Each structure stands twice: as structure tokens, then as C-alpha cells.
Amino acid sequence: MLNIISIIIGSIALLLGILAFFPFLGWAYWLIIPLALVGLAFGQLSSSRGGRNLNLIVVIIGVVRLFMGGGII
């Protein structure tokens, strides 16, 4: 059950992350990364690894995108 919740949260964060990849929307990663971290916590409590890995990928992409944009753009 926790893995399903983690996958749902990760999917929402991933969809928002795809939208935030457009120019001038990079600031949205400041909201997406904490959302993915919540999903990562649910995935960590689960016995499966799928949800955890999905959220981990979203967090890594978000951090790299913020780093490339200087943290704001």
C-alpha cells in the first residue's frame, strides 16, 4: 500500500517536473522536490523499491535543474 502511495506521489511530481522544465518555470522545483521527498519517505517505508526509485529520480532531476538554473530560473 505504501508503495502505491509513493508511486502516485512520484507520478504527480514527475508530471509537474516535466512542466517545470520549460523556461521560467524552474522555480517550481522548489515545490516539486519536497513533494518527491515525501513520496521518497513513503517508498522507503515500503517493502518494494519502485516508488522509492521513482521519487529518487525526480529529486535528482530537480536538484540538477535547480543547479543549472542558479536556483531561481
Rank of each mutant, 00 (worst) to 15 (best):
Gly69Ile: 07
Ile73Ser: 06
Arg52Asn: 11
Gly62Ser: 05
Met68Gln: 14
Leu2Ala: 04
Val63Cys: 06
Val63His: 11
Gly70Thr: 02
Gly17Arg: 00
Ile57Arg: 08
Gly50Lys: 08
Ile61Cys: 13
Leu19Lys: 14
Leu66Ile: 08
Gly26Met: 03
Trp30Asp: 01
Gly26Ala: 08
Ile32Asp: 00
Ser48Tyr: 14
Ile8Lys: 09
Ala28Phe: 13
Gln44Leu: 10
Ser48Cys: 08
Ile57Tyr: 08
Ile8Ser: 10
Gln44Lys: 12
Arg49Ala: 09
Phe21Trp: 02
Ser47Pro: 15
Val59Pro: 04
Leu31Ser: 05
Leu31Cys: 05
Ile33His: 00
Ile73Lys: 07
Leu37Glu: 10
Phe22Trp: 14
Gly39Val: 00
Asn53Met: 13
Arg52Phe: 11
Leu31Lys: 03
Val58Arg: 00
Ile61Asp: 02
Met68Gly: 05
Gly10Ser: 11
Met1Val: 15
Gly70Ser: 06
Ala20Gly: 15
Arg65Met: 12
Gly10Asp: 10
Ala20Gln: 06
Ala41Ser: 06
Arg52Tyr: 11
Phe67Asp: 12
Phe24Tyr: 14
Ser6Met: 04
Leu45Glu: 08
Ala20Val: 13
Phe42Asp: 00
Gly17Ala: 08
Leu2Ser: 01
Val59Asn: 04
Asn3Ala: 02
Ser6Glu: 11
Ile18Ser: 12
Phe67Gln: 14
Ile73His: 07
Leu15Trp: 14
Ile8Pro: 02
Leu54Ser: 06
Val64Asn: 06
Ile4Ala: 10
Ile12Leu: 09
Arg52Met: 09
Val58Thr: 01
Pro23Thr: 04
Val63Asp: 07
Leu37Ile: 15
Gly39Glu: 01
Phe22Asp: 13
Ile4Gln: 07
Gly17Cys: 08
Ala28Cys: 14
Val59Trp: 03
Ser48Thr: 08
Met68Asn: 13
Asn53Lys: 13
Gly71Ser: 04
Ala20Cys: 13
Leu45Gln: 05
Ser47Ile: 15
Leu37Trp: 12
Asn55Glu: 00
Ile9Ser: 08
Tyr29Cys: 00
Met1Trp: 15
Phe24Met: 12
Met1Tyr: 15
